[in-house]
Design a protein around this nucleic acid. Sequence first.
DNA 1: CGGATACTTGAGGGTTGTCAAAATATGTGG
DNA 2: CCACATATTTTGACAACCCTCAAGTATCCG
Lengths: 252, 252
Amino acid sequence: MNLSPDLSPDHARLVRKLDSLIELPVEDQAALGRLTLDVRDVAENVDITSEGDRPTSCCLLLEGYACRYSLLQDGQRQIMSFHMSGDLPDLQSLHVKTMDHGIGALTPCRVGFIPHGELLELTRTQPRITAALWKDTLVDAAIFRLWLKGMGRKTAKSRIAHLLCEVFARARAVDLAEDDHGFELPVTQAELGDALGLSTVHVNRVLQELRRDGLIASHGKYWEIRNGPGLAAVAEFDPTYLHLRRPLPRWA
Amino acid sequence: MNLSPDLSPDHARLVRKLDSLIELPVEDQAALGRLTLDVRDVAENVDITSEGDRPTSCCLLLEGYACRYSLLQDGQRQIMSFHMSGDLPDLQSLHVKTMDHGIGALTPCRVGFIPHGELLELTRTQPRITAALWKDTLVDAAIFRLWLKGMGRKTAKSRIAHLLCEVFARARAVDLAEDDHGFELPVTQAELGDALGLSTVHVNRVLQELRRDGLIASHGKYWEIRNGPGLAAVAEFDPTYLHLRRPLPRWA
DNA sequence: CGGATACTTGAGGGTTGTCAAAATATGTGG
DNA sequence: CCACATATTTTGACAACCCTCAAGTATCCG
């Protein structure tokens, strides 16, 4: 990647993310670099955006991890995605006015809010940026589809394996994975369960099984893929759906 | 809605669909009316587009019903969405080159293929059409999220109820539902199961339960919502996520 | 009318959930 | 840097929702 040197570190995260989807000429990078970023801190377990809100800006996640979620009437929670630095978890609010889900901070987060107006102006003048942003929302949708496939037709073991492959691949694509197999995902087993449609107890048992099989290891919020091909096989993981420009490790 | 009178019936279906999401001035309607439609017939159970394809056009469903699906290694199928006349089920191929799932015809279908080039040209010149198309893909994503929520955290009964509410609401929005509670959804119980992550047998039993409760009735491919508020309550159905411009029946 | 597809029913089993509690890790104030 | 409160992980027993298998019935369509 050819990252324009005069970008702020915050803008660079955005550019790096979009550039993982579509090659962005320096002019487009510069245009992104001129976007207003209203930076704020959000505490753990606090909403960045709540269901029912009608945002007038999109949030760029700069530091920390967040999730998309929705609550049921009985208080159960469904997590629909995990987000890391560089993600625009409520980008869809650009064209879909009312939030039909919330974005919550899984860890203390630093986020930058970009006014809708500025983004819409870019989409009127910069077709490549439009394509990149649109594609980002499309990859989101592709991820939802794969989760759907997992929830509908895969075992708990395969689902968990798939999630770990996916988060690793996404982290890798934006230079957040340290090496060929380690990455950060600061979520509790209860949160994994809420994401995968499983109980905490069952998540725990299946994780133990994956460890026993030598497929993964974990130390708190850090996860390690011990046997990539094995894990990918259990998961039936094929990264095509992430539509990344740059190749991933062979096994993924 | 103010449908431009000089549209072909096929183009009108597209305009009616996009207009259900965003108000389209006549100039935009006219621009849509000039799109090339390469019309073809697709037989039941044949793919309109297959997983792995790299389409150079988007298909507009003109007549019939289709579904998005993906197969697992063991042959199981996950259906990710149902599509009706007016839908653009592979619109995402505009920006995401490789199909990560297939589009299959559930009934004999008539589809019109629109060249990517023409759509991309529109997105460069007509911001409202861009917004409408983008929003269409965003509503798709919202529907995936709701299915995800259902599969993860709802009972089979609630999931089936939700699907019926949703298809009714979508059909209503494009004038495909005959009255306040009847609509067409020509799918077998096996297909419902593949969509909802359930076995055929269980779908059957739950449908009987919904009928016994007086919530629905069905005659072959036609479905009737007998008790809208009751069904919506079981489903926890709230149509906000469909982001429709025009109101739906009170209960939905 | 006949074959195929779809729907229905019954019996039994398995993956996963619930409840409850113990063990361990984490974090904060003194 | 320890002590205690809290959050998280782990374990066990039992139950439930849903699945599989299998067979019978209804429906569609040429």
